[in-house]
Amino acid sequence: MEAFTRLTALAAPLPQPNIDTDIILPARFLLITEKAGLGRYAFYERRTNGGFVLDQPRYAGARILVAGDNFGCGSSREHAPWALHDLGIRCIIAPGFGEIFRANALRNGMLPVTLPLAGWQMVLAAAERAEQVTVDLAAQTVALAGGTTIAFTLAPDERDALLGGLDEIDVIRARYTAAIAAFEAGQRETSPWLWDKD
C-alpha cells in the first residue's frame, strides 16, 4: 500500500453533510470491474451540472478535501475512495465519516482526519480561501498557511499502517498464520456444525 507521511497541498471545500458514496460514485459506474480510472466518474451528477468545486480552476491540483459531517455514509463501495484517489485526493478532513468508507480509505493509503467542529471550521475557511494546508501524520497535525496548527488523533495501528504503507494481508499472513490455524482447530471442536461443508 502507498504510504502517507506528510502532505502539503491545496485543500478544496465540500462542506455539505451526509455526502454518501452514491454521490461520490453513482451506482451505474459500479459495473466497471477495474480499480483504475474511476476518477472521471467521481461526483458525476454534480460535475455535469458545472461549477463543481474540484473542477474550478482555483482548486486544480487539490489533494485535500475538507468535507462535511458523515462523509462517505451509505453504500460500502470501495469504488468511492478509489475514485477520489484517482482524482488525486489523499486526505479528507471532516467532522465525521461513514464507518465503512473510512476503513476503505485507510486501506488505500488515504488519510481520513476527524476534527472537532471548531478546528474543522478553521480548515474549511482555509480551503475556501484556496490555501495550501499541511497534514503531518507522524505529528498528527493540520497546519494552516496562517500559522495555526490543529491536532488530530488516529489510532496507533492505523497510523503505523499508513506511515509504513503496510499491506494488511501481508502483515496478517506473516504474523498470524499459526493463530488462525489454532483458532480453526478449536472451533472445529466447539462448533462442528460450522465445518460440515469443509
Partner: peptide, 12 residues
C-alpha cells in the same frame, strides 16, 4: 465490508 476486506477474508 469493502473490497480490500473481501480480499483479506478470501486470503486469510
Amino acid at each position: 465490508i469493502g473490497t480490500s476486506e473481501i480480499e483479506c477474508v478470501l486470503a486469510a
